[in-house]
Simulated scan of single mutants.
Amino acid sequence: MIARAVLRTVGSAAALVAVYYALPLNHSSAWGAVTMLVIGLVVFVGLVAFQVRTILRSPFPGLRAIEALTTSVPLFLLLFASAYVVMATMSASNFGERLTHTDGLYFAVTVFSTVGFGDIAAKTEAARLVVTGQIVADFVVLGLAIKIILGAVSRGRQPGDADGAQRIHR
């Protein structure tokens, strides 16, 4: 069971990264980037809601929560990385240089981790607004999403709830 969970986790993260690198981000427009980011964030919220539900119904909620986090966080980071690559392609002044897919991912992870090496920086107001949006969303993801997922693990482990009773009888 643990091996399957690890394979699913690695497989989904690898698939997300492969799709990210396959996307022709250097041919997108500003509206395309905004639309992609907004739709992606809606999908992200939907994914977290679905994952909370599966955690609650899982016979192994802790394992399912780890799977949920290792799918949700990469998706979240790749959404912002995509936006950064598109913005840098549209105008080199947004970040001081054009960003490759790897540079965009690196920058998104750097912002998420609050390390901020300073080698890539948002130079325009538009870029700074998107980075600020990621920072605010980072707090939400780290605070709210993790709290919700861990709360679902706690509820999923309670033997007295309806889902727990159904799991015991299966």
Rank of each mutant, 00 (worst) to 15 (best):
H169V: 12
F139D: 07
I168F: 14
A92D: 08
T124R: 02
V85D: 04
G32Y: 05
F44I: 00
L79F: 06
E125A: 11
K123N: 09
A162F: 11
R155I: 08
T89V: 03
L75Q: 13
G104W: 00
N26L: 08
A49I: 12
H101C: 09
T9Y: 03
I146A: 11
L129M: 11
P24N: 05
L129R: 07
G96W: 00
M36A: 15
V10H: 01
I135C: 05
L63H: 05
A3S: 11
V38E: 07
G151S: 14
L23S: 07
V45K: 10
V19K: 08
V52D: 00
R64A: 14
A88G: 12
T54Q: 14
I146L: 13
V52C: 15
F107Y: 15
A126Y: 07
V141G: 00
V42W: 12
R170Y: 10
I66P: 03
M1H: 11
A15C: 07
A83M: 06
G118W: 03
G116Q: 11
L129A: 13
T71Q: 10
L63Q: 13
Y106H: 12
L129D: 08
V86A: 07
A5E: 08
V136T: 12
G164N: 10
I148P: 01
V38W: 02
I149M: 05
L63R: 11
F76G: 02
L56Q: 03
L69N: 07
V6R: 06
P59G: 12
L69H: 07
A145G: 02
S58W: 02
I39Q: 06
L47N: 06
V48I: 15
A165Q: 15
R8I: 09
V6K: 07
A126L: 13
T9Q: 07
D163A: 15
V153Y: 02
S91P: 04
I149K: 04
A68P: 02
Y106T: 12
L7Y: 09
T9R: 03
L99F: 05
T54W: 09
V153W: 02
A127P: 04
V140Q: 04
A108K: 03
I135Q: 10
V45D: 09
S91K: 01
V86Y: 00
A83S: 11
S28K: 04
S28M: 09
T102M: 10
S154T: 15
R53Q: 06
Q134E: 13
V141P: 03
S82H: 02
A3L: 11
A18L: 11
A33Y: 01
L25I: 05
V34N: 03
A145K: 00
Y20L: 06
Y20V: 04
I135W: 08
L79P: 00
R155G: 02
F76Y: 15
G160K: 08
S113M: 10
V136E: 06
I120L: 13
A18G: 10
V131T: 05
D119M: 09
V109N: 00
N94P: 03
E125Q: 10
L79N: 13
I146V: 15
P61E: 01
S113L: 11
A152T: 01
E67G: 11
V85E: 01
L69A: 10
G46W: 06
V141C: 05
F76A: 04
L41D: 04
V136Y: 05
I39M: 10
L47Y: 08
K147M: 10
Q166T: 09
G116Y: 13
F76R: 03
R155L: 12
V19F: 14
V42G: 08
T102Y: 12
G104E: 00
T110E: 15
R167W: 03
T114C: 00
T89S: 15
